[in-house]
């Protein structure tokens, strides 16, 4: 119960209701390349699979498949391809404009997402573990992501696309600080 503050009546004092400002730092611009490659691989694979399924259904000519389905089976790869194209061209740039992070006043503040955005505020004192991760693509691009875990899945977050040195320093700092501040509220 250490962190409970008695309420200060903010509604009476301020004429303007509060609004969150964006976090201070952007992620590395190379993150765009990362997302493009990642989405490209996943959606390319999906497109290939959809194409294969469509060709298979058309060629097999089963009686079990109703006519209305086999006539329109080529819609599947077209839809998958269109969405994949959208994801590869639009989403990475949009994401780069949204993704931001900041650590100050012992609070980790992040903004992620693109179509739907999420702002996350987690005090360092409630962090249980901090991991840094590097996938294959991230390694090629010199990027890393850090993962912050708390006792609740909703309070856990992942900041992607940080330069490696920034990520390592940040993770170390957070882990030290979390150790110092750790309170057993959970």
């Amino acid at each position: 119960m250490t962190s409970v503050r008695r309420t200060q009546e903010t509604d009476g004092g301020t004429p303007r209701p509060p609004r969150l400002r964006p976090p201070a730092h952007r992620v590395s611009p190379r993150a765009v390349a990362h997302w493009i490659i990642e989405y490209g691989l996943v959606w390319g694979l999906g497109f290939g699979l959809a194409w294969g399924v469509a060709a298979w259904v058309e060629g097999a000519d089963w009686s079990a498949v109703p006519g209305w389905l086999s006539e329109r089976v080529w819609w599947l790869p077209i839809l998958v391809g269109a969405e994949g194209l959208l994801m590869v061209t639009v989403a990475p740039v949009w994401r780069y404009r949204v993704h931001r992070w900041e650590v100050s006043a012992d609070v980790v503040y992040t903004r992620t997402g693109w179509f739907s955005r999420e702002w996350l505020l987690v005090p360092v004192g409630r962090i249980q573990t901090v991991d840094t991760r590097q996938g294959l693509i991230e390694r090629m691009l010199g990027l890393a992501s850090i993962e912050i875990n708390t006792a609740s899945h909703a309070g856990s977050s992942r900041v992607e696309g940080l330069p490696v040195d920034v990520a390592t320093r940040l993770a170390e700092r957070l882990a030290h600080r979390a150790h110092d501040l750790r309170d057993d509220a959970t």
Binding site: R5, T7, P17, P18, R19, L121
Partner: peptide, 23 residues
């Protein structure tokens, strides 16, 4: 939207107020 931030700020002002616009 503003109520959401205001509610969070009212309950834990020390986590939220540093990130509020113009504050």
């Amino acid at each position: 939207e503003r109520d959401a931030v205001a509610l969070a700020a009212r309950i834990t002002p020390e986590w939220v107020l540093p990130f509020v616009e113009g504050r």
